[in-house]
Design a binder for these strands. Structure first.
Lengths: 119, 119
DNA sequence: TTGACATATTCCCATATCGGCATATAATCC
DNA sequence: GGATTATATGCCGATATGGGAATATGTCAA
């Protein structure tokens, strides 16, 4: 077996940085392909291919408007990624608290030598 | 150019479902490789390779304990993914509100025919 | 219909993947 | 040291990638 297809799910689709840029760009407003080409500075065929992948996994929606096609981000499709990452929130909070506690313990040892404040 | 390396960043690393499973498993508690093998039902070399990728991008940390190596998830490294997906939160909220509003408009048209409530 | 514009698809290629299998490295115990 | 346990690495093959260049499809306008 090889690597899973980029079109197999949202996780694979967003692994590509250009596709993440496209999603951010299209989240604000629907746009024709040419706008994306300008924004990202990619070749038009490349953009079309990325859009194809994004469309296959439901991350963008298209609408025809005369000659152009208007793409927009379908934020709903990003939600599973958000939810998966969210499950780790409590762990990094936990780790941060530990870091903070260590830092404070250290501060107490050194006693009255504040730092980390931009004065 | 080909697809970016799985070790190029956290986004690429978590594209692989087994690696996400490993991260979830190791978030709760540090574990030796053998435990992961049992949990996921993969071959030991496969697990080692996945761990290698995860380690390269900082998603897990290792500690030697006698013969075994204890791995644990480094939740901090998942944070950028969480933050990126979070930027879309307002958009899917927005979309949900629209869906809700449309549904309510529809409800008003049909007039006094409630649904969606489990009675 | 012909031509211009907007987007999509096809073909090529260098590259990295993941799994399977065999083997290497490392630590422990006798 | 030698055997055993725990983990890591190397090699293989099938597969998909993403960029580039060329071309195809689709839409409008005259």
């Amino acid at each position: 077996m090889a690597r899973a297809a980029t079109t197999s799910d949202a996780f694979n689709a967003i692994a590509e940085p250009r596709r993440r840029e496209i999603l951010s760009f299209l989240a604000l407003q629907e746009r024709p392909v040419a706008d994306i080409v300008l924004q990202l500075g990619l070749e038009q065929p490349s953009v079309s291919k990325h859009l194809r992948v994004l469309r296959d996994v439901g991350l963008v929606r298209v609408r025809r408007e005369g000659r152009q096609k208007l793409y927009r981000t379908n934020a709903e499709a990003i939600r599973p990624l958000y939810e998966w990452t969210s499950t780790f929130q409590r762990f990094w909070r936990h780790q941060l608290i530990q870091v903070k506690e260590r830092a404070e313990a250290q501060a107490n040892k050194i006693q009255s030598r504040p730092w980390g404040e931009k004065t």
